[in-house]
Design a protein around this nucleic acid. Sequence first.
DNA 1: CCTTGACCTTCCAATCGCTGGAAGCCCCAT
DNA 2: ATGGGGCTTCCAGCGATTGGAAGGTCAAGG
Lengths: 132, 132
Amino acid sequence: MKDGMTIGDAAKASGVNAKLIRYYESIGLIPEAGRTASGYRVYNDRDVNVLRFVKRARTLGFGIERIQKLVGLWQDRSRCSSEVKRIALQHIDELEAKIAELQAMRDTLHELADACHGDERPDCPILKDLAS
Amino acid sequence: MKDGMTIGDAAKASGVNAKLIRYYESIGLIPEAGRTASGYRVYNDRDVNVLRFVKRARTLGFGIERIQKLVGLWQDRSRCSSEVKRIALQHIDELEAKIAELQAMRDTLHELADACHGDERPDCPILKDLAS
DNA sequence: CCTTGACCTTCCAATCGCTGGAAGCCCCAT
DNA sequence: ATGGGGCTTCCAGCGATTGGAAGGTCAAGG
């Protein structure tokens, strides 16, 4: 094999660890790797690029299913960028929703914590709120 | 039983559904409920208050383990409010971290989406970024 | 009294995206 | 040939639910 690497090499080259590469294969996110005669998976630079794509997409918070679509579009030279953008905007919406949810939690807690003396006395607005 | 309700009644009264109440019991978040002769769980108003407390704490994003501590403090009349506040502040820190992470994702994606024409052409900065 | 239907019980499985471990094979260097 | 690393598979767990299946119980109506 000229271009072939083991899963460990592909892991180093892509930044996706070997365990996770196998997992991605098992769920069909990436295609089944080729094998040596003794059963070792074999990867090439193209495979590593796919892994890097996946890793970057995960970093941006995309779920596996959406990444599958994105990989498909990436490899489809006749794709419409509108399709990609649609997926991105949908994901942004979900991020916004989650952010708003967490901010609401933080704001409420912040108010409660501000109102709490935080000393040796048992009186506590935080617990009062939770018990209400 | 004067004060006893079934799990369904406790669910309605607390807003925590029956399945979840059983789950909370199974993991030890709430104590084991009493039982009727035929094996039905029995709840009283005090139990419902605990369930409401748990529900409110979940709404604020606290994890189960921390809620366990909060319930303990709530029921400990000699608690220090500082202990409660410490837990709340810790949780706020974690919320902040998560918010920042999601915002970073959103901001990056927002920039990419802005740069993407979103039309029938295949050229797409979003995919370019992911492939980089 | 019997049936019906709504409730209750337990247990098992799936979600999402990993991560860890166990048991066993392969490959290379000493 | 022996050791140690890397590879293989499979199984299990994380957190916090949710769903379903299979079966027991209860109250009301015919």
